[in-house]
Amino acid sequence: MATLFRPAERWRNRALILFALVLFFFALVLPFGMAVLWSLVDPSHPWAYPNVLPPVLSFRRWVEIWTTTGLQQALVNSYTVALTVSIATILLALPTAFAFGRMEFRGKAAAQVLTLLPLAMPLFVLAIFYVTILSKLGIYSRFLGIAIGHTVCLLPYAIRLLTVSFSGVRQDLIDAARDLGASRLTVFRHAYLPVLKPGLLAALIIVFILSIEEFAISYIVGAPDFTTVPTILFSYLGYNFIRPSAAAVSLILVVPNVLLMLIAERLLKSAGASGAAGKG
């Protein structure tokens, strides 16, 4: 493909790539570098006026944050909620996505628009009135409250991703398997599963990450004692603002998400590939 580009265009591309790299450096590398530096400020040597750089660096703060902030409990809460939510969301989304991806029926377009409703709802509005509803129903379990809230709000993502997967399943494969007298299970295993699997896993991971990241519902429903990772971070940015500690918590929040998202993207790519092959 590269031969298609004229030399002038090639130089322009190179200049633009360089510009993108510089921008990336200032928008991401530098801020993260600053956060790393702050998180390494030694707890007994303040970084104060007029020091331009922290006087002493150490890993002590990381150890302290890990052992004293309740971060461990928050991680447990976040991850159990996210696991419950991602499984529940996928189970609920599967039948609906099947209908959208493999069936034609009256009102399909309208129904698809309706599934997007939670995306159009400002999350703080949802959270505040959702809490009122929960207390009217007498549901005091914050775990259940947050899990239900997340499940409903993340259903649109799961339905959308799985719809694409279902529509990528090749009808001729299904027909061929049926003609050969394959059982339903065999049809599912050979015609559906290979195409569905990457989309399924990607949906699982994306819902998982979005649940961990969700702030409004976790904050309002979970307050004050059911903490998730974002609510801890919010308290470190507000009432309990101690910059070096906030830096450490921020970094702890970012790493697992980056890893999971990279996996999800890889899966989505292969889902896209098999989906495209399905059309051939």
């Binding site: 307050a223 308290s235 507000g238």
Partner: peptide
Amino acid sequence: TLSNGDYKANQDKLIA
């Protein structure tokens, strides 16, 4: 077990 809530949220919970 120490909760992580702020003052207002704690007091709201007590009343609620």
